[in-house]
Design a protein around this nucleic acid. Sequence first.
DNA 1: CAGATATTATTGCTCTTGCAACATTTACTA
DNA 2: TAGTAAATGTTGCAAGAGCAATAATATCTG
Lengths: 252, 252
Amino acid sequence: MDKKTVRRKEIVSLLTEQPTLRISEIATALNVTRETIRRDFREMTDLGLIDRLYGGALLRQGPETNVDQRNDLLVEERKKIARLACARLEGAQTIMLGSGATTAHAARQIASECKDMTVIVHSLGVIAALESNHSLTIVMAPGLFHPGERAVHGVTTVEFLENYSADWCVLGASGIGTEGASDALLEGSDVYRHMIRRSARCMVLADASKFNRRFPSRYADWSRVSALVSDQMPDRDLTAAIRAAGTEIITA
Amino acid sequence: MDKKTVRRKEIVSLLTEQPTLRISEIATALNVTRETIRRDFREMTDLGLIDRLYGGALLRQGPETNVDQRNDLLVEERKKIARLACARLEGAQTIMLGSGATTAHAARQIASECKDMTVIVHSLGVIAALESNHSLTIVMAPGLFHPGERAVHGVTTVEFLENYSADWCVLGASGIGTEGASDALLEGSDVYRHMIRRSARCMVLADASKFNRRFPSRYADWSRVSALVSDQMPDRDLTAAIRAAGTEIITA
DNA sequence: CAGATATTATTGCTCTTGCAACATTTACTA
DNA sequence: TAGTAAATGTTGCAAGAGCAATAATATCTG
């Protein structure tokens, strides 16, 4: 672990003991210059770890994520998927994110691993997962708010997306079948279809429980999907159908 | 209640909303010199109400209940304002809502009292307050997400609003002065100004602690505001200035 | 090992804060 | 109403803090 990481862990640990730190104090304590601490503070602020004060910093009190995660079954699977997805986004400048629990998990991972990315979203849950990372540019799409999904939908949303382009779009799915990815919500599917259209590549996230299920609205056939990210490989037939369209299957 | 007491209550109240205050900021906001604030801080530190920082102060976090009590009082005031505002919206078909804590309170009231209304919003906090009422049509505006305010801002937001019209817009304010209503955030003010333009009438919500304070960005002079809703009447001069522009003051 | 890159230190400058002493205003009381 | 005490404003100065440009050092990579 390099010096920088050690120092920053030390800063966080000190802040859990006392509410605020002054730059001059820790600079002498850790035997570095004040400028170095200032640089640490700047970056840690961008990452949403701390809040700056004139002359110091205090620990950021943010929304707790543990509570949500406990209520959630399938957490481990989704975390794994999130990590895989995030690794694949390496180098992307702009991405679009769909809605749903799996996507929100991916968003949390993105918030902790990525920097200086532009993220276009239409879901409140996804924003909540991203907002701790101040270095991200988060663009919210407009539209009719759907209370169940906590996301916006409709013509307005779709039209808005036409003005944007992304390197990747990252979508969840209710069902993964031989003929493509499908969703339970018709309105969400319209948004997804347009996100795919406006993105260079498309990644679908789905844990194994979604395999071989078909929902009313198919939002993409496999020819439009660059990669399926999951915690397990699908069965023979499904794998064959997906690969036949040139879609990569990422499980580890 | 003398000025000093009012000012110190205000300091505590501001500290319940944000973790720290900087001397220079509140000095200009409350229109006193920094030395005065410094003297306040010294005495409040002796009383154990706050902790000093270099350049500011933060609320002392301990087993003290005073803080909670004051916070509850503030909630009471906001509830009163919310009820008054809601009563005045009777019969409106479409409304626009701003951001901020007071507006969120009003939104909660609207969610419990109103039916079949279209509500145009740009704040996540306001959506959260509204989403329990499924009879409402909630339209979310697009834009750049601002993590601090949990709302969207910017050119995209403003352009979007041009496509909508409303019977009322309901806005919060950081400061209420003779020359109009002002806000601490410049980006929010741009959105507010356009909401006013696109609404037949405009309502500003502000508890008495906001009176005679001026913040960087004035988003409306009183000629553009139909009604100011508060828990108390402002002083003579302020009342006169507001009424001179034809703005109604609603306190009960 | 050399070159490239990242990290940290140093320096010079400006702005902000804290403090103290003194002036002014406000509020209260006889 | 005058006089007094409290509260607030004003000013000058020393120390702290932020910023940007540059130099020095550490770290990585082929």
